[in-house]
């Protein structure tokens, strides 16, 4: 079953074509890596899929709903984690979870059970009443992920979720991603860490608004005759005429 379908999706800002005619599909339960240099158009593409930005042309379906016609239905079925982690620093850990539960309309009693489960999964039950601002960065990141999937969305969009976190915390974070995928949540993740790309089921590489490569890391390495994702990325990124790296 396909949970994300993009067909000739395009976004123009005036003359500038941020996203140029991209088409791809993501299967349910897949971990889909969305790679690209800064300015390649990853974020714009993701914003369109999340219903934050209207496509200039082309179609997209997320969780079976049209992103242009039914953005509200799309929003109810997705989770989103921004690269800033976006937690309320002056709320307690459980209050952050309760807030997102409330926003997604989960009944109170269920929220309490879910908070319990989520904290147990993260192994931070003792920090339930801690203000988020006094949590270490790695914990904030995990908590942000928990809030993003708190309402059991069909798909979770992660926008460079591991920025600024040490390698160990990144590994632990990917374990959370795998657990979510095992529960049937489709994971759509942008990153510029090429070692993380190897963890994905499939990856796409965006260059100058276009998708230049899309397959499993294994097949891509074969196709580009490369030892690792890093080499593939550099081969493709060299073609870029815009962006800052």
């Amino acid at each position: 079953m396909k949970v994300i379908e993009a067909e000739n999706l395009t976004k123009k800002f005036g003359q500038f074509v941020a996203v140029d005619n991209i088409s791809f599909q993501v299967e349910k339960g897949e971990i889909f890596g969305f790679l690209g240099a800064n300015g390649a158009g990853k974020t714009t593409a993701m914003r369109m899929l999340c219903g934050l930005s209207k496509p200039t042309s082309g179609q997209g379906k997320v969780a079976g709903f049209d992103i242009e016609q039914q953005p509200e239905k799309v929003k109810a079925n997705i989770g989103y984690m921004s690269q800033k982690f976006a937690l309320y620093e002056d709320l307690r850990v459980w209050e952050n979870l309760r807030l997102y539960g409330g926003i997604y309309g989960i009944p109170s009693r269920e929220i309490n059970e879910k908070i319990h489960a989520a904290l147990a999964q993260l192994g931070i039950e003792n920090e339930k009443d801690t203000m988020v601002k006094s949590l270490p960065l790695g914990w904030k990141q995990k908590l942000a992920f928990s809030t993003a999937i708190f309402h059991d969305p069909k798909i979770v969009f992660l926008d460079e979720p591991t920025g600024g976190v040490d390698p160990l915390a990144r590994r632990q974070f990917w374990e959370l991603i795998y657990e979510a995928a095992d529960r049937g949540i489709t994971v759509f993740v942008t990153t510029h860490y090429m070692d993380e790309a190897e963890y994905c089921n499939r990856v796409s590489v965006m260059v100058d608004g276009k998708i230049e490569a899309l397959d499993s890391p294994k097949n891509l390495k074969k196709q580009f005759d490369a030892k690792n994702m890093d080499q593939i990325f550099h081969q493709l990124a060299r073609k870029a005429t815009r962006g800052n790296n």
Binding site: K75, S82, A86, I103, Y104
Partner: peptide, 12 residues
């Protein structure tokens, strides 16, 4: 803080 973005992605 980026929280507004997260709220806007929600069905609120």
């Amino acid at each position: 803080l980026g929280t507004m973005e997260v709220i806007l992605v929600s069905p609120m």
